[in-house]
């Protein structure tokens, strides 16, 4: 696949900050948040200063997102831009400062979530990459890869209510929310697969037992940013 970002793109350049940025990506139900939490505990047990950040709405755009969802105002483009605004806010206040202070930042979802989701909704894949030009390149990006059916099973057995936008109901792919989730998230999965080589994801088989996955996760940490862990200990 053709390269969609140039060398000047933030995701293509080393950030050069004293801290390290670890990102976990994957669809809902992939178990990425669980793995991120365990990793955090492990790093902290080794006296590594960790800051954990999730992609929740910042106060800045929370109201707009709610208004948009309630009144059904959101289009693929405004949906994408609102998330980018959120991301920019989060990057400025929650990611960059701890990295400058030398901490390890674990981000539950990052710009790649937007690339996958927004492209699945129909925006231009090159445009959405351009929008995130200001992002910085993670030191490690884990992609927790899981088939749709497994993810769905996990979500449903945990009795989590599948949310309207998570299922991509706004795309009108199907009237049934479970079926729509399958169709929409499959598109997102396809995008993740395309991005794996584009951005050099560390792919973790998310159907494996939790402990097995965590061992793989820690190995990769030791290989690529092991000095940080050793320094902490």
């Amino acid at each position: 696949m053709a390269k969609q970002i140039d060398d000047k793109h933030g995701l293509a350049r080393d950030h050069g900050l004293p801290g390290k940025l670890i990102v976990v990506e994957g669809i809902d139900g992939s178990g990425k948040s669980t793995q991120a939490q365990i990793l955090k505990q492990w790093l902290e047990a080794h006296n590594v200063p960790v800051f954990f950040t999730e992609w929740n709405s910042s106060p800045l755009v929370k109201k707009a997102t709610r208004r948009g969802k309630k009144k059904n105002l959101l289009t693929p483009t405004t949906f994408s831009l609102l998330h980018a605004t959120d991301f920019a806010d989060r990057l400025s206040y929650q990611v960059l400062p701890p990295l400058k202070a030398g901490m390890v930042v674990i981000a539950d979802r990052y710009a790649y979530t937007a690339f996958g989701r927004d492209t699945a909704r129909g925006v231009d894949p090159g445009w959405v990459r351009d929008v995130y030009h200001f992002a910085i390149k993670p030191d490690i990006t884990y992609y927790f890869k899981v088939p749709i059916q497994v993810a769905l099973q996990r979500l449903l057995s945990a009795r989590t209510k599948i949310k309207f936008h998570e299922a991509g109901m706004d795309t009108g792919l199907d009237k049934d929310i479970v079926r729509c989730f399958e169709l929409f998230q499959q598109k997102v999965l396809d995008e993740y697969d395309r991005m794996t080589s584009e951005f050099g994801f560390e792919v973790i088989d998310a159907t494996l037992p939790i402990t097995t996955q965590q061992i793989m996760v820690r190995k990769i940490v030791m290989e690529s940013i092991g000095d940080v862990v050793r320094r902490g200990a």
Binding site: L60, T75, T77, A88, L91, S92
Partner: peptide
Amino acid sequence: NNLTFNLLYATDLADRLEH
């Protein structure tokens, strides 16, 4: 800040453009 400033204005135009 500069980033969110630009992004919010772009969102504003995109919303008005499509609606």
